[in-house]
Structure formats: C-alpha cells, structure tokens
Design a protein around this nucleic acid. Structure first.
Lengths: 187, 187
DNA sequence: CATCCCTGTGGCTATCTGCCGCAGGTGATT
DNA sequence: AATCACCTGCGGCAGATAGCCACAGGGATG
C-alpha cells in the first residue's frame, strides 16, 4: 500500500518532518504543507487519501480547512492533531468532518491506527501491524513535559506553571529522567 | 416549541429528575428513561426530537444507543452528557451521530443551547479558537487513559496493561473524579 | 466442576508530590 | 550599590499516590 498519499499540514516544521519520516516508513507516500494555501495546492495536485492536520496553523484555524479539503477530495480522511486539545474543538472538528482527533504528543502508530480505523479499503493489514503499546503513561508524560519545556525555552518555572505542577516536582522529574536521546520508533 | 418532546436517559435518578424539571420549565415536554431498554421503548412510543443521553448507563454504554435512537427517530438530536468527559469519548460520540457533547456538571441553559444549536456551525468561528495553554499534566494523563480505555472497550485490566501501569492504580485513578482544574472553553 | 479472566476491595510499604524555606545567580530599575 | 523580580538548585517534611500482594465474587468456557 505504498501508493497511499498522505498530506501532513503543520506549521511546526520539526514536528512535521519527524512525523513524515515515521509515516513514510510505515508505507505512506508523504507530502507536507506548512500553511493553508500550500495545503490547498497540494491537495488539488495530489488528491491525497489521508491528511494529518494541525489545529493551530499559525494565524489560521485548521478547522476551516477540513470542509475545503473534503470538497477537493471527497474521500479524504482528515486526522486532526493538536497540542492544545479541548473537548470543544474536538467536537467541532468531528462535526466538520474530521475522521478523528488526537492530542499531541502522539506516536506514529497511534496516528496510523486513527487514519486507518474503520477503513474498509485498507486491505493491507501489514500497515496496522503495530499494535504496540499505546504509549505508557510515563512516556506520554515525559514527551509532553519535553514539548512544553522546549516551548518555554527551557524555563523550568514557567513550564511547571503551564503544566499545572509544582516547580520542585518538575525539577525532580527532570533530574531523575535519564535524558534519552533516541528512545525507539518515531518520536 | 413547547410541544418539543425530549427524552432524558440517565441512570442517575436524581440528576435526571433535576434536569427534567429544569428543561420542563424551559418548554420541553420531558420524558425520562433510566436504562437502554426503557429508552428504546420510550423513543419508539414518543418519537422525541431531542435527547439527553448519559455516557455511562450503568453496565451499558450510552454510545451504542445513539445509532439505535437515530434509527428509530431519524431527526432526533442527541446530546451526550457525562461526568467523565474526555476527548476520546467526545470524538466517538460525535462520530456516532451525537449532536453535541457536554461534561457534567452543566447548567440547563447550556443544555438547551446545545440542543437547539442550529446547523449553523459554520457561522460562529469565534467559538472554536484553540485554548492557549497546553494541557496540564493531569488532564493529559486523563485524556490518554480515556482514549486507551475506550480502545479497550472499557476493559480495565487490559488498559492497565497497555498503559504499563498497575491495575489497582488505574482503578484508583478512575474512581477519582476527572481532573477538572481549568475547564477552559468546554463544559 | 475447574479454569481463566475480569472486577472491586483492603492493607502495606516505598515513592512521589506539594509546599515550605534558603542560598545563590542574573538582569533591569532606582 | 542597592533593590527588585526573576530564575535555579537543594533539603526537609507531611500527606497523597503507586506498586504489590491477597482475597472474594462474577461470568464465560471446556
């Protein structure tokens, strides 16, 4: 099934690149866009069957893009991804036609699972053959901490504040965790 | 609109009664059911246009009821209510045809608003802006747990296994109330 | 009936968390 | 220089939480 085109739309170049590589190695033919216009153009040209959309596209709102993409490619499957998840936006996303909605951090397997979920046309079960752990809680926590930490330029106090936890607790978590560089798959 | 029939399905009798009274005074003709069978029967008989459904119906899962109700009354509008709100279940609910999804506690006006909210979703884009703050750690954890739990069809042991945590710990977390520290835009 | 897997529960200890406080560092403002 | 207003690291302590063990009951299944 390497002929499955997948469009990643995310203004976070790093995240998009990592995800693109991970999904590429899972059999998708990945193209990426960093803004709405680019996304529209690429969708028109490549008619991708799958799409991973970031909710927060810089100034624009990813939600508005969903109907547009579907107008261009009726059978497209849009998976919404966001680090700023909320129930309200999730509901809106699905109502607007998104296939699923996940909050970052996610691992590539979860993305694949969500994309192919319920897809009767996805005859290639090999693709989904990675039912491995849905991220242990520890790992999820760590990933998220790192995300926010980076977002805060390494400012521990600020990170703790945003994470709603005590600074001391964050410090201890950080000092305890042996900063592993390349864990395993994907991320 | 005082002739609008509304079916409340909730196994929490107290909550159902209070909500029924509140909605009754707002012009709905309210009937209540405390379980799935009763709900099916009442729906068949009264053909309600609106429905407030509890996600946790004792043993049963409210989600499964949505398609059934819609089969009985095509134009029915189902509003899902739950004290254990999570993005995963919200997504599932909408995908299964729910009109909206709110988390308890909620005031009657919000319920009415959600129920009557026209199909003019495309109109108010202001409401769908993404939250500013990243998910607090506890919230993130809760969302992820709910996601996997749903994926495991509510099987706690299996979920704990996949999450790499002790079953007892998961149980304790679940028995505790959902972490609602900063109910930003939802609820 | 035996077996397997699920669930709920209680108790124990080890660990973690939140919340103090303190000392030192940096950079801007007075 | 003194004074803020931040930040960081660290220690201690009481209370919350996690992991682990055990047991009882339910519900399938052979």
């Amino acid at each position: 099934m390497s002929d499955q085109q997948l469009l990643i739309i995310d203004d976070d170049a790093t995240f998009a690149r990592v995800l693109a590589r991970a999904l590429g190695s899972r059999g998708f033919e990945v193209i990426t866009a960093s803004n709405a216009d680019e996304a529209r153009a690429l969708t028109r040209r490549h008619q991708p069957r799958y799409c991973v959309l970031d909710l927060k596209l810089g100034e624009e709102n990813g939600l508005r893009l969903i109907p547009e993409l579907q107008a261009l490619v009726p059978e497209i499957r849009v998976l919404l991804l966001t680090g700023y998840a909320s129930i309200a936006t999730a509901v809106e996303a699905i109502k607007r036609g998104a296939h699923d909605y996940l909050s970052k951090p996610v691992d590539a397997d979860a993305v694949v699972r969500a994309l192919l979920d319920g897809d009767t046309n996805a005859g290639d079960d090999e693709l989904i053959d990675a039912p491995e752990a849905p991220l242990a809680l520890r790992r999820l926590e760590w990933e998220h901490i790192q995300r926010v930490l980076t977002e805060c330029d390494g400012n521990i106090s600020e990170t703790a504040r945003r994470l709603g936890m005590h600074r001391r607790t964050l410090q201890r978590k950080l000092s305890k965790h042996p900063v592993r560089e390349r864990p395993d798959s994907e991320d």
